[in-house]
């Protein structure tokens, strides 16, 4: 998993294909990082992502639940129209911001 930690903020650079197979690794590694680095903010960066399915939505929702319990926030950047449509359909946009450009 490609990522960057800046203080209590974790940026996850999502893979090209965000499916069940790849989501597993992101779930494991990000949970480990969240715990070890006292992360409160998670940014999901879709810049490289050309494929996403419900497993990708699941991994985002799962991280949201965890971060929310810790009093933090989750957001997404560089999501294309298709990813946005999927995020809207699953109601994720009600709980997190989607930014066009990196904050």
């Amino acid at each position: 998993m490609k990522y960057q930690v800046q203080e209590n903020c974790l940026t996850i650079f999502l893979p090209k294909e965000l499916d069940h197979h790849n989501a597993e690794e992101i779930r494991k590694e990000s949970d480990h990082l969240i715990e070890r680095n006292h992360i409160r903010y998670v940014i999901f960066d879709f810049a490289d992502t050309i494929f996403c399915d419900s497993s990708g939505i699941g991994v985002i929702m799962g991280r949201y639940k965890r971060i929310y319990m810790l009093g933090g926030e989750v957001c997404a950047v560089h999501a294309n129209e298709r990813m946005k449509k999927m995020l809207v359909m699953s109601g994720v946009t009600k709980i997190m911001q989607i930014y066009e450009e990196e904050k």
Binding site: D53, S54, G58, M61, S90, G91
Partner: peptide, 21 residues
């Protein structure tokens, strides 16, 4: 939509909804 029997495995319950859409 959002129905899943495996919420513990980070399933969102959107699979069939996406197939339909």
């Amino acid at each position: 939509p959002l129905f899943t029997t495996k919420p513990d495995l980070d399933r969102s319950g959107m699979g069939f909804s996406f197939m339909e859409a």
